[in-house]
Design a protein around this nucleic acid. Structure first.
Lengths: 264, 264
DNA sequence: CCGACTTTGTGCAAACGTTCACAAGGGCGT
DNA sequence: ACGCCCTTGTGAACGTTTGCACAAAGTCGG
């Protein structure tokens, strides 16, 4: 093995796709440990984690050679190595901004605190909510973002506010020193480079599901009633006129075979 | 990704990465329309959606040629085309299983119903919750999964139950005819092929953020106090003995420079 | 009606990610 | 001590995604 061919990032360069799977492996490993399993093969671990074994082995190989050929991986040892790589050997205080339905659900979420994350504060701008106690936290006013972040040395912030205020909250979090943001608001946040944003968006996930569901439906209809011909080809010839005629024609589904199929 | 010959298949074959971005474009387009903007260039739309313009153009080109060279895209027309492609011109009834904190938050979530998705039923297994009214829905007992799915012809199910019951709920949803599942429970669901699962996992997102946050911290420490040497190279020589000696040594951070750096 | 200007749509190459397939390495029974 | 068998770790092939750069195609002023 020895070293990488230089051009590569070498030391710390774990691919993003791998990083995104490590937490899944970690959870799976915990589950195995709870069942008293001390050693696991890449095949077993991969299958429990829902990936194929080659991918799992390559992922783990980025952390180092922690397996034993002919045997597999020591569960406890691998738990430690993965945890360390993810930065979970330290405690991460987190601030949640927004104590609406979602913020409350997050504050109450058990798996939150379970692995190294700790809700340090819960903030909201609504005076009617400030002062109330939720999941053992007294809701503080959102004006206190800066002081809360500074005092607890928080580097991870969770935005669970309405879309309208998300960018503003984000700016204040960043100004206060937060460098990682988990955003539940349905907006694209803009942040200076060096700040890491991840978004969780229910609506987007549903729309992706809808796309595939629709595709299945279309295929099913197509199978049941064949005879469409080329499928491409059309579309040219009269695009401008469709536009000129307003959207009525398009809205009625005369632009695409799919649209008709679905209406059938 | 598994299905479809892939050959070329221009018409139906929209890359998964593109599909995942279409909802973002759609939301951005709605925002533009609300501001009364009728036409938008790929540059403007891309910047508002947080991607680069070449990617946006390539993404849209998979749906067809809906722009006008020298001008840009008609906002309203593009909204319709993207909606149609995503299958949002029809209504998607959705069943939510689990009326805990998360389930309640989801049922109350406005953006849910806003674009073609409709909560058809809210189910829970806890007798203490069944019968209560949440966000205008009377919670029904989870035993009714099959009948609810059948009656409303539901093809999208949302699992917001504890991890322990998620697989069971999933199996019942699938058996009842659901083919798309959005899973909030922290488990890897196994489903027959042909069923589409997407997962949303707060804990995983936080762990990914922690990884990057930790890396930033390590780099900062390394910059401040240089002089480590090779960095790779070590790790071999004594792996077996570390294992033999139990995890004590590893746990104390003598295996990796990073572990010490973070402790500094 | 024409030519300058703008912006789309796309061929191409590089980067990234996945999967295959197998040599290297280690345990275990004899 | 030896050879068999098992599983890891990884080179190489393949597929997907990104980004560049530019020709094609349209608008608009004169």
């Amino acid at each position: 093995m020895s070293r990488r061919p230089v051009s590569d990032n070498g030391s710390q360069g774990i691919p993003e796709a791998t990083v995104a799977r490590l937490p899944v492996y970690l959870r799976t490993l915990y589950a195995l440990a709870d069942r008293g399993i001390a050693t696991v093969s890449s095949e077993e671990l991969a299958s429990a984690a829902g990936v194929n074994s080659a991918k799992l082995r390559k992922d783990l190989s980025h952390l180092g050679s922690y397996g034993t050929r002919g045997v597999g991986y020591d569960v406890e040892y691998l738990v430690y190595q993965v945890s360390r790589e993810l930065g979970l050997t330290q405690d991460w205080p987190v601030v949640i901004v927004g104590a609406g339905n979602l913020g409350r659900a997050l504050a109450n979420y058990g798996g939150f605190a379970s692995r190294g994350f700790r809700v340090a504060a819960l903030l909201d701008a609504d005076p009617a909510v400030v002062g109330k106690s939720i999941a053992g936290h007294v809701v503080r006013h959102a004006d206190g973002i800066e002081s809360v972040v500074a005092r607890h040395e928080i580097s991870i912030g969770v935005i669970a506010t309405p879309a309208g205020t998300a960018q503003d909250v984000c700016d204040r979090l960043v100004a206060a020193g937060v460098t990682s943001i988990l955003n539940f608001a349905p907006v694209v946040l803009s942040v200076p480079s060096g700040v890491d944003v991840r978004k969780v968006d229910l609506s987007i996930e549903l729309q992706i599901l809808a796309f595939h569901a629709q595709r299945r439906a279309v295929v099913r209809v197509a199978d049941a009633e064949p005879g469409w011909g080329t499928h491409q080809a059309r579309r040219r010839g009269g695009f401008g006129s469709v536009r000129a005629a307003g959207m009525a024609a398009a809205m009625e589904g005369d632009t695409e075979p799919e649209a008709q199929a679905i209406a059938t």
